[in-house]
Design a protein around this nucleic acid. Structure first.
Lengths: 195, 195
DNA sequence: TGTACATCAGTGAACGCGCGTTCACTGATGTAC
DNA sequence: TGTACATCAGTGAACGCGCGTTCACTGATGTAC
């Protein structure tokens, strides 16, 4: 029995949504409190009625972005599974898709932020660790039964690294790198062909 | 016939050296001009006699850091080759070594900055691309003859991604992820066992 | 149903701080004769 | 070798701007009776 959200809860959710996109687009320090509030249709003065600090928002934004990623990947994997492909194939092809290279804002929060994670305050770093663990768990769930967690870690590292390098190179070079990585993971991976 | 460096050239090199460490430790925007100059034994006012802008320093710092990385990895690979191991093994074991996880400041400039690269000004992004290309070339040179560049791209992505995730997880979880990735690359890679 | 008041949610000005950049100036180094 | 002057390299104060945070205030929403 969930009550309908209050006016404040709606605003809160809107701010977090905006921030979840902003940190992926511009990085941890790329967008200011005032800009986020403005994009959420509010003024910056009200910010501290919602969050103790900017970092508190960043933590919520990471959670939100990460959960979005997981939900979206899970959905795609299930849909693909219904069509007859393997889960692993669906995961790799979705994560290393061209659209993911271009659309950072809606993409993987880990790929968007990983090289900055160790430089954040403890609360933020802790949430970052949770995000990595969740992503590894998702990859694990897409591997055939019998694969262990460490296998999922390597696959995750490869996908995250490839997406970042592809984004940096951009254009055709980036697309080529993505294609090569898809190929290496799907066609050469010892577990990929098992159901 | 190289002349001995002028006083100014020595200062310039010192500033770039400091910045090359600073951007890897703290990120593109993590350390200010004043701090860098101070660490180089100077005051901030003299900065613009050396560089047109902060970004101009960042470009030189990336070049410096990247060249250091290449020189250091090349040396380790050659030394290991003399002892009888394969180049590829030496590369992977060095790059994915625990020391590299801890010591960001002296480590791979790509792993330290990759998720921020697409957000930089054009000059900086262009140098970032050059760094990625050089790293891929280095990895390529460590693969057995016959491997092509695209193979090197995938290995590079895997190593960069693994180092970042390991740093984020930290401690034992980070070490374990590194170990797993070394294992996956060295023992399972189709090209790894060829001379 | 209507009025009176309390609480809620958001406003907008202001503060303090850090940072990139500029600039007039100074002491050191190098050159001309 | 010594003096006079120009150039070089660096100093330190100041400017302007953006950003996180605070706070007194206001209009809207909800509650009591």
């Amino acid at each position: 029995m969930s009550t309908s959200p209050t006016r404040k809860e709606l605003s809160h959710a809107r701010i977090v949504d905006v921030a979840a996109k902003a940190i992926r687009r511009a990085g941890y320090r790329g967008v200011g409190v005032a800009d986020i509030m403005k994009e959420a249709g509010l003024t910056h003065g009200g910010f501290y009625a919602h969050f103790d600090s900017r970092d508190a928002l960043v933590v919520e934004a990471m959670t939100r972005a990460g959960e979005e990623n997981i939900a979206s990947l899970t959905e795609v994997i299930e849909r693909r599974l219904a069509k007859g492909g393997t889960r692993f194939q669906a995961l790799v092809e979705t994560y290393l898709h061209e659209a993911h290279m271009t659309r950072t804002e809606d993409g993987c929060v880990i790929a968007a932020l990983s090289s900055e994670m160790t430089r954040q305050e403890d609360v933020v770093l802790e949430e970052a660790r949770r995000r990595v663990e969740k992503m590894v768990a998702l990859v694990h769930s897409a591997l055939p039964a019998g694969a262990d967690e460490s296998e999922a870690e390597v696959v995750t590292a490869t996908m995250v690294g490839a997406l970042q390098l592809a984004r940096t190179l951009g254009g055709k070079a980036g697309s080529a790198l993505l294609a090569q990585t898809r190929h290496a993971l799907i066609d050469r991976h010892p577990l990929a062909t098992r159901p």
